[in-house]
Amino acid sequence: MAHAHKLEIFRGLLKFKSNTQKIWGVLIFLSIVTAIEVVLGIYKPRVLTHSYFLGMKLLNWIFIILTLVKAYYIAWDFMHLRDEKTSLRRAIVWVPVFLASYLVFILLFEADYVYTVYRDGFIKWNF
């Protein structure tokens, strides 16, 4: 059966002998990432909750980046996008990535505007 698996992750930093081994390796990596998220979520270090980047707390940036990292490894190794043809992989990944980022950008921008209307406008909502 000509079924080639690409057996390395982290751009070749970590090589595995078999596909099964790679799966367990990815599991360990995903568990570590989740553990980091949970620990940060429980302790919420003051350094990270009180510094901002582009209007969002650093802690939240870390959470979102770690989420994307996890999503990458789930898609690449569990859904074996790593072994698919480049054209198929790009079609699958970039369509939702582009559309979702556009939607998120435009909705959050609008929501922020609505928030300022609630804050500065002459609407009484807290009574």
Partner: peptide
């Protein structure tokens, strides 16, 4: 199917973000 379903979930999560940013305080 997965790509279209992913877009559905993006829509849900983005609207969650909308409401949350609207009532951020």
């Amino acid at each position: 199917f997965i790509v279209s379903d992913a877009l559905t979930f993006s829509g849900f999560l983005a609207s969650y973000g909308f409401s949350r940013f609207k009532f951020i305080e």
